[in-house]
Structure formats: structure tokens, C-alpha cells
């Protein structure tokens, strides 16, 4: 017993040592001071650490995106100050949005968002909207995919749409988020473009996390609407069959690349799950210019490309002006769908 105890103490020592080494290795990246001393603060910027914010919890999509950005910017020495990531989860991103309002005018805060930024405003969760942020750049996209059980009678997406036209309650649609959020909107957008009339009557069942995939494999629901990168494994193995992707052109490799787009099947619409970075409201121009310049360089690096490939992200860079236009356009599209199903509660 005593022998064991001594050993365990030794083990603790080893672990502590390993951790120290790891943490030192993590901290050793050099913090160069701003180049040259000019007297206005614009020229010296950035002089203190940034704060990168994920409006969701650790491990989620927003969190991985912003941590990856921070890591690549630091590894490639594109930003001269540290960029610690903090989490501000809650309210589907609304807590992070409220937090950014407190940082109005700050040149040191950067947050990541995706379509929920628009949806939480349109469905009335928060009064704040994308207009209360400064768009920096769009970075990546994922697309929606509609999958069915391998034995499903629906062979193409048009089979589904025909069935819905006859009886909107005949196909049970599942998704991983509550009604009026991404998976639901992605499907309704396609249904609308295909000419299905009673969008409001289509039955939508939301599951937590990726449980919907298991429910589809078990044959409990008819169709599952989700992000394309979520189902690659099950698609490759033949446990599910995909009817359509919502991108403009085919995406990915292997089985995923065999999935036709909606447009190919005569349904003229797309749905993009974009992710991009924003600053707080009234972020100074010199900060926007600095960060956008750094991000333009970042998306050209091999490290960024490699990370995108690993995560199944499609690169989709847009600068601040184009990004804003893109957001305004999608916001109108979502608004129309939400209005049609009676979920528009914009304040």
C-alpha cells in the first residue's frame, strides 16, 4: 500500500511536470511590441490583448471557428497581440450580442456569428440585430442537406415536395434546432421554392443535438434537415440517403459530392450556413482595416486551408462591404419565410 502511495505521488509529479512543459510551450509565442513609436494611437494599434468572443459554449461551432481563427492568426504572426477566447453563451447568441453592446467603440473585441444572429432578432428573442455590430469578414460556409432512411419511398427531393403539396402533414420533417431556426428555415426555403403552399402546416419535429440522425436511422421520422458536414460518416456508410444539398454547386468529396443540389432538381434556391466575424458597434475604422487586412492574409495561408478541410468548412471569404450586403439580402429572405409561418416577431 505504502509503495503504491509513493508511486502515485511520483506520478502526480510527472503529470505536473508534463503540464508545466505544455503550458510553457503554449505561452512561448512571442509578443512583439507594435512597430515604431508614433504618437497617435491609430498607428500604435494594437497595444493590448484582444478579446475574441464565442457566443456559445466550448466545443460548439462558433467556439471552434473563433478558436481556429485565433490560433492561425497567432501561429502565422499576423496579429501582434494575444487573442484569448472567452465564451458568452446563452439566448442562442443573444447574450454575446448584448455583451458586445457594452463594448461599443472598442477596437479590441471580435465576435463570431452565423445565421442565428439574424434569426434571434426576427423571431423576437432580442431587440438587437446585425445592425448593432460592425461586420468584418465572412469566412466560411456550411450547407444544408436533406437526408432520408435508405428504404424511404422518396427517391428525389421532388417526391417529397409532391407529397407535401398533396398533404402537408404527410411527411414528418426533423431537425436539430427549434422551429424558426436554421434546419427548419433551410427546408421551408426549399419547399417554398418548389411551390408548396401551406408552409405553416408542414410538421416539424425538433431534436436536441444530433439525436435526429439516430431517429431517422431508426425510421421514426421521414426526413432530417441538417448541416452537410454533420452526416458525412453516415452517408459514406449507406445508413442514410441524401436527397439534396442546399449549395449552388455540388460540395465535398466521395458520396457527398454525388448528392445533387436543389437547383439541379429544378428547385431554384440555396441555403447557406455562413460564419463570419464582427466587431462591436462603432468599431473605429483603423481597427476594422487592421483586422480585415490580417484576415485577408490569414485565409491565404496553408494552415487555414488545412483547418478548413479538417473541419469540413467551405471557404467563403467576403470583405466588410460585400458581407454586409450579403447579410441584408439573407435577412430579407428569412423574414419572408418567418412571416409566412407566423413566426416573425421582429421588434
Amino acid at each position: 500500500m505504502r509503495f503504491l502511495r509513493k508511486r502515485s505521488v511520483g506520478l502526480v509529479g510527472v503529470v505536473v511536470l508534463v503540464l508545466l512543459v505544455l503550458s510553457l510551450a503554449g505561452c512561448s509565442s512571442d509578443n512583439q511590441a507594435g512597430e515604431g513609436k508614433k504618437d497617435n494611437k491609430e498607428a500604435e494599434y494594437p497595444v493590448k490583448p484582444f478579446e475574441f468572443i464565442a457566443p456559445g459554449g466550448p466545443g460548439g461551432g462558433w467556439d471552434t471557428t473563433i478558436r481556429t481563427v485565433a490560433k492561425v492568426l497567432e501561429d502565422q504572426k499576423l496579429v501582434s497581440q494575444p487573442m484569448p477566447v472567452i465564451n458568452k453563451p446563452g439566448g442562442g447568441g443573444a447574450v454575446g450580442l448584448a455583451y458586445m453592446q457594452e463594448k461599443k467603440g472598442s477596437p479590441y473585441h471580435v465576435i463570431v456569428y452565423s445565421p442565428p444572429l439574424l434569426l434571434i432578432n426576427l423571431n423576437g428573442s432580442t431587440k438587437l440585430s446585425y445592425k448593432d455590430l460592425t461586420p468584418l469578414t465572412r469566412l466560411i460556409m456550411d450547407y444544408g442537406i436533406f437526408v432520408v432512411h435508405p428504404d424511404s419511398p422518396y427517391k428525389t427531393i421532388n417526391d417529397v415536395m409532391e407529397a407535401l403539396k398533396e398533404d402537408p402533414k404527410s411527411v414528418k420533417i426533423a431537425g436539430s434546432s427549434s422551429p424558426g431556426s436554421m434546419d427548419h428555415i433551410a427546408f421551408l426555403k426549399a419547399a417554398k421554392a418548389a411551390g408548396v403552399k401551406n408552409l405553416k402546416e408542414i410538421e416539424y419535429i425538433s431534436y436536441q443535438g444530433n439525436e435526429g440522425l439516430a431517429q431517422l436511422m431508426g425510421g421514426h421520422v421521414d426526413l432530417f434537415s441538417t448541416g452537410a458536414s454533420e452526416v458525412v460518416g453516415a452517408l459514406e456508410s449507406g445508413d442514410i440517403r441524401a436527397l439534396a444539398v442546399t449549395s449552388a454547386e455540388r460540395i465535398g468529396a466521395g458520396k457527398l459530392a454525388e448528392v445533387p443540389t436543389l437547383i439541379e432538381q429544378g428547385i431554384n434556391t440555396t441555403f447557406e450556413n455562413w460564419r463570419g466575424l464582427f466587431g462591436p458597434p462603432e468599431m473605429p475604422d483603423y481597427a476594422v482595416d487592421y483586422l480585415v487586412a490580417a484576415l485577408i492574409k490569414m485565409v491565404e495561408t496553408d494552415q487555414w486551408k488545412e483547418m478548413c478541410e479538417k473541419n469540413g468548412w467551405n471557404e467563403a471569404f467576403l470583405g466588410p462591404e460585400e458581407f454586409l450586403k450579403f447579410i441584408e439580402k439573407t435577412n430579407e429572405e428569412y423574414k419572408e419565410i418567418l412571416r409566412e409561418i407566423g413566426m416573425l416577431k421582429q421588434q
Binding site: 471552434t64 458525412v232 460518416g233 453516415a234 459514406e236 456508410s237 445508413d239 479538417k310 473541419n311 469540413g312
Partner: peptide, 11 residues
Amino acid sequence: MMLGLKPGPLL
């Protein structure tokens, strides 16, 4: 998935 694996039967 970040490590490039696809969990599923084919794993």
C-alpha cells in the same frame, strides 16, 4: 472530425 476521422460504421 477535426482530426480527419469520420465516426460511423466505416470507422
